[in-house]
Design a protein around this nucleic acid. Structure first.
Length: 479
RNA sequence: CGGGGUGUGGCGAAGUUUGGUAUCGCGCUUGGUUCGGGACCAAGAGGCCUCGGGUUCGAAUCCCGACACUCCGACCA
């Protein structure tokens, strides 16, 4: 790729300054712009359309598994937030508070939801009375607010959009199964629809959600060798149920506490798409979620018959893909660059010469390959090429992750790998003690990403302290 | 929250050291010629120089303060 000429010179190159490259794409591809309030961004129509595609597919998958959507209030009274001790301690530092209604000072402060566990619990306490009321499988699409100190578009913003699933179950086993099932939904979605390979695993005690018994995660590796948590699923046991006094009469006619889960994926995933697939010419979108999958650029469109042909092709192809014609007065070269920057997976060029030969030129965004396609074969060729792009992106991302994953058994080597400009994933054995986790953070600057479900025995001892190891763990620098 | 950087038409910048009529490129509007990798010509429109104080005959420029963005840390799903 590096030998390819850089055609879009408005975007800073990745190697030069990755952070600037990222914000350049966010701005130039018209994904987001800043609002007047710190950390709050305008999600522009293009990014909104991407999010809608993500959302529709996830929503479909959730419902297929029996989940129902619900809409909770955005405000939480302080007393309610404080019901679960670990939870409030975890979130208090980043909560936005409402103190006034109009001019009148409120008797009790109200928090803008940073997450909605407490609201769901309050509601569940009201509606769950019998084992016959279980399970409750609820989900909501909403935005939440966390007063972050450092913000970046999509990756960390004051307000962000997400979905949060909250479920209640009769038994611990059922809840654990749900936790795992939803993590798998996220992982499959990332790999199949977004072409982002992920590592599934469990978070350490230090990294787990405030109030959870166990937190599971899918971790993706970005182009710069940093990790991004891309989705998360928690098992709560009955901790919240006890704190919120949610009880039901069981099959044996005794009172029990239900077992709970929660799981979420946010607009942060758009950041993951940018940083997994993007290149120096801009965004590269996986066809599955691209708002426009094919852009048709007419060449010499003022000439007789060209626009008619273009519209005819669009008409035909709109039955098999999301396609649009750009018949604006910009030059073809301008259009090529523009849609590359916006990451449109395929471009069709059609001009007088093509029409004469009953063909068109199709160009892939991911590898710039130019393919001459007969106009008669478009309905089969275009979907096949879209699939090829989708698969190609996944393969490329997987190869990249593998090339940046290092197995380490020695502490000095660990530190050496961690201090490279692009750390990547480090796989190493760990005793699972917090002391070693903190030490590795201090001397190598990495955090534990997860203990993967797929374990390997690299050695018998912890890479840090030399005591017996309990789990092979992924380490890295994270967003 | 600590340390650095930046803030000038829609976007990107010059001008700030040494105070003196607001500049350039891109974009935008109108008309015309173009059209297979960011076209060209001509004529136009558009600026409380981030905001608030201060110094001065005079401030984009000097001083004080605020805010925002951004990078590096810390924190943080």
């Amino acid at each position: 790729m590096s030998e390819q000429k850089k055609l879009v010179n408005e975007i800073t190159s990745m190697d030069e300054d990755f952070a600037k490259w990222y914000t350049d794409i966010v701005k130039k591809a018209e994904l987001a712009s800043y609002s007047g309030l710190k950390g709050c961004m305008v999600v522009r129509p293009y990014a909104t359309a991407i999010w809608e595609n993500i959302r529709n597919e996830l929503d479909r998958r959730f419902k297929e598994l029996g989940h129902e959507n619900i809409m909770m209030p955005m405000f939480i009274p302080e007393s309610l937030l404080q019901r679960e001790k670990d939870h409030v301690v975890g979130f208090a530092p980043e909560v936005a508070w409402v103190t006034h209604g109009g001019e009148e000072k409120l008797a009790e402060r109200i928090c803008v939801r940073p997450t909605s566990e407490t609201l769901f619990c309050e509601h569940y306490a009201e509606i769950i009375h019998s084992y016959r009321d279980l399970p409750k499988l609820y989900n909501q699409w909403c935005s939440v607010v966390r007063w972050e100190k450092t913000t970046r578009p999509f990756l960390r913003t004051t307000e962000f959009f997400w979905q949060e699933g909250h479920t209640m179950h009769e038994t611990a086993q059922e809840a654990m199964d749900e936790t795992e099932q939803m993590l798998n939904v996220y992982a499959d979605f990332c790999e199949q629809c977004l072409a982002i390979p992920v590592i599934k695993g469990r978070k350490s005690e230090k990294e787990k959600f405030a109030g959870a018994e166990a937190t599971y995660t899918i971790e993706a590796l970005m182009h710069d060798g940093k990790a991004l948590q891309s989705g998360t699923s928690h098992y709560f046991g009955d901790g919240f149920a006890r704190a919120f006094d949610i009880k039901f009469t069981g099959r044996d006619n005794t009172l029990s506490y239900p077992h709970q889960t929660s799981w979420g994926m946010s607009t942060r995933i758009i950041g993951a798409i940018i940083m997994t697939h993007g290149d120096d010419n801009g965004l590269v979108l996986p066809p599955f979620i691209a708002p426009t999958q094919v852009v048709l650029v007419p060449i010499a469109q003022h000439k007789e018959g060209v626009l008619d042909k273009a519209n005819e092709i669009m008409e035909r192809l709109s039955k098999v893909c999301r396609i649009k014609v750009d018949d604006s007065n910009n030059s073809p070269g301008w259009k090529f660059a523009e849609y590359e920057m916006k990451g449109v997976p395929l471009r069709i060029e059609i001009g007088p010469r093509d029409i004469e030969n009953n063909q068109c030129v199709v160009v892939r965004r991911d590898n710039r390959e130019k393919i001459v396609v007969s106009l008669d074969a478009l309905e089969t060729e275009i979907p096949a090429l879209l699939k090829a792009v989708q698969d190609g992106l996944y393969e490329k991302a997987l190869k990249h992750r593998e090339s940046m994953t290092t197995r380490v058994t020695d502490l000095d080597e660990f530190i050496a790998i961690a201090s490279r400009p692009q750390t990547g994933f480090i796989k190493a054995m760990w005793c699972c003690e917090r002391e070693c986790e903190e030490k590795l953070k201090e001397i190598a600057g990495v955090t534990s990403r997860c203990m993967p479900f797929e374990q390997e025995q690299l050695s018998d001892i912890c890479v840090c302290c030399g005591k017996p190891a309990k789990a092979m763990t992924y380490w890295g620098k994270a967003y």
